[in-house]
Amino acid sequence: MSADYSFVADAMKQAVPWVKTSGVEFPEVAGDRVVAELPDAAETRNHVGGPHAAMIFGLGETASGAVAMAAFAPHLGKATPLVARSEIAYKKLALGVLRAEAVLGRPADEVVAELDAGARPEFPVNVTVTNAEGVTTAEMVVVWTLKPNR
């Protein structure tokens, strides 16, 4: 039996107002992988007609946050997920609807074991952003931490 992650999309839209405002949707959500999509909107484009870099970064970071929420939802009463650092590489001009695939870079049980041992664990989420044709337009790594609630 697989876990139910249907709560993640609504939770992200409630917890992070930008997600709802930007129109990000979550067509696929699992415990270690999320796909998020950003619609093409004229008001979010840059000077060359594609989504502004801030929108691309926001999509990738949002997808990574959805992975953190899905992977660690049972533990959010004892820790708060926060971004520790991130890096993005813009590979090709992005045009149209974008898709970000975010994948948890460490097994969740290892991260939780560190948290339970009193540490403030970090875990990477690897994100690939593609256009409607499936061409990679950006790659990023978002390193998250679970900050123990005191």
Rank of each mutant, 00 (worst) to 15 (best):
V19G: 03
T145W: 01
M12F: 10
V24K: 00
A108F: 08
E28N: 10
F57C: 13
S64C: 10
K78V: 12
V8G: 02
A3K: 12
V8K: 02
A113M: 07
L146K: 12
T44Q: 09
A11E: 13
E87F: 06
V103M: 04
A79E: 06
D4Y: 08
H75F: 08
V143N: 11
A36L: 13
A68G: 08
G31D: 09
A3N: 15
V97A: 00
V83L: 05
A30G: 12
V34G: 03
N149F: 02
V135C: 03
L104Q: 05
S22M: 15
V35Y: 06
H47R: 09
M69K: 00
V142F: 03
W144S: 04
K20H: 12
Y90S: 06
K13S: 12
P39Q: 10
T130S: 15
L59A: 04
G60E: 03
F123Q: 02
E139V: 15
V8T: 05
E28F: 03
E114C: 08
N131E: 06
A66V: 08
E139I: 13
P107S: 11
F72T: 09
M69F: 09
A15D: 09
A94F: 03
W144P: 01
S22F: 15
A117Y: 06
T137S: 04
V111K: 07
M69Y: 07
A42S: 10
G58N: 10
V97F: 01
G60M: 09
D116R: 11
T62F: 05
A108S: 13
M1I: 08
T21H: 14
V127W: 04
G50L: 12
D116T: 14
P74S: 07
T137W: 03
K147E: 10
P81T: 08
G50C: 08
P124W: 14
P51K: 02
L59P: 00
V125D: 02
H75A: 06
D10V: 11
P124Q: 12
P148F: 04
T136G: 05
V112S: 08
K78N: 05
F26M: 06
E43H: 15
D10S: 13
P107M: 11
M69E: 02
D4W: 06
D40E: 14
E139Q: 15
D109P: 02
E139A: 12
A113K: 12
L146T: 13
T137I: 14
T136W: 02
V141N: 06
Y5A: 04
D32T: 13
V97S: 00
G118F: 07
E43Q: 12
G65L: 01
A89S: 13
R150C: 01
E139P: 01
Y5S: 04
M12Y: 05
V141L: 10
V141I: 13
V135H: 11
E87T: 12
T130I: 04
E110R: 08
I56R: 01
E114M: 14
